[in-house]
Nucleic acid binder design. Structure first.
Lengths: 195, 195
DNA sequence: TCTTGATATGAACGAATGTTCAGTTAAACC
DNA sequence: GGTTTAACTGAACATTCGTTCATATCAAGA
């Protein structure tokens, strides 16, 4: 029997990615088995291979999707005119986007070393494109005398680390609203680079 | 035969921790096998169990040692008088300490989810003690009107994330000296919280 | 109604895992 | 020189891993 109940064609493919994302974020890629993922989807382990070639590709697909959605979401974002407005847009966008996808964010920062070299290079390339966005804003603002940053690359890494750090402690329904967190972080970012 | 060459009593215990730290930092706890660690030490896998009870304890020992050394090192650090001086001391200390121990730092931030609940709680307690040091400085400076931080807990998390982020990109012998990195980061920290 | 093709099962594969343990070695002590 | 003892080996244990595949099921088209 193919399944206990329900009909075929009930989109199993996407459910695999969703289940894998949840499990890998919680336990780590190496600690999650294909059988666990299958159980979460409600299917036997062998059935996973109708949708993915192997476990490594599953991880790569999750990370690539996350990075591509990140870049696409920024493209669709209202940018602002001045470097200061752009920096605020970026800071708020970064917090908002990553807080909305805690699992994917966690995986993309923690599981890099479980990617095979070629896959690693491709994810790193996407990440660099994202970092270049922030560095571009900082460079422009530096040239205009609005920002004072001795090293734009270093400032880029510092600000992204700080902003991504929100994910490690923020909890929905906690003491602070997302809007309030955004404002406080934006204030720290602004003051950290203000000329 | 016990060994191919050399004599017994050549401190194998510490070498296990050192090898495990290197390997786990590079490949992740779940992806490292006891046989790999043993090979790195130059011993058979069974011999590891003369020094450690099991793999989980090995991870816990690494993380506990790191956190305890961190707290002890801060105790031994010259503190400064004013909140501003204390904050500078903390920022520079944090960067210096963690850059000197990239493997242990990496493990302590990445492998928390591989700790069993009880071990996790103990490591988290140590981490909280460390975060409380920075929050204490921020609170004191806020009360004195030297700092302007709307929420000391949030600022603590933001600054620690930013400072620890140095480890993700800094490379010995790279473009920037450690002293220069320290100064630039300290400047950003100072401006981010200055009243 | 018969055929087709996608979807899924469940058993099986070899390899690898953490851990144990009876036996071996060699240095240290009497 | 004989005994003790800590250090270590190497084989074995029961599980579990990712992956494959012959087979079964079912919905849809002819």
């Amino acid at each position: 029997m193919a399944r206990k109940s329900g009909s075929h064609g009930e989109i199993t493919g996407p459910r695999i990615l969703a289940a894998a994302e949840r499990l890998i974020a919680r336990k780590g890629f190496a600690a999650v088995t294909m059988r666990e993922i299958a159980r979460e989807v409600g299917v036997q382990a062998g059935a996973l291979y109708l949708y993915i070639p192997d476990k490594q590709t599953l991880l790569f697909d999750l990370m690539r999707r996350h990075m591509e959605e990140l870049l696409a979401a920024w493209e669709a974002e209202p940018k602002g005119e001045t470097p200061l407005e752009q920096l605020e847009a970026f800071a708020r966008f970064h917090i908002r986007f990553h807080l909305a996808r805690p699992d994917a964010t966690f995986i993309s920062y923690m599981e890099l070393r479980n990617l095979e070299p070629e896959n690693f290079a491709r994810i790193e390339a996407l990440r660099k494109r994202y970092e270049d966005i922030l560095e571009g804003i900082l460079k422009e603002g530096s040239a205009a005398g609005v920002f004072r940053v001795p090293d734009t690359k270093l400032a880029t890494m510092a600000l992204i680390a700080m902003l991504t750090g929100v994910n490690t402690w923020y909890r929905e329904g906690g003491r602070l609203s997302r809007e309030r967190v955004e404002r406080i972080y934006w204030n720290m970012v602004r003051r950290a680079v203000k000329g």
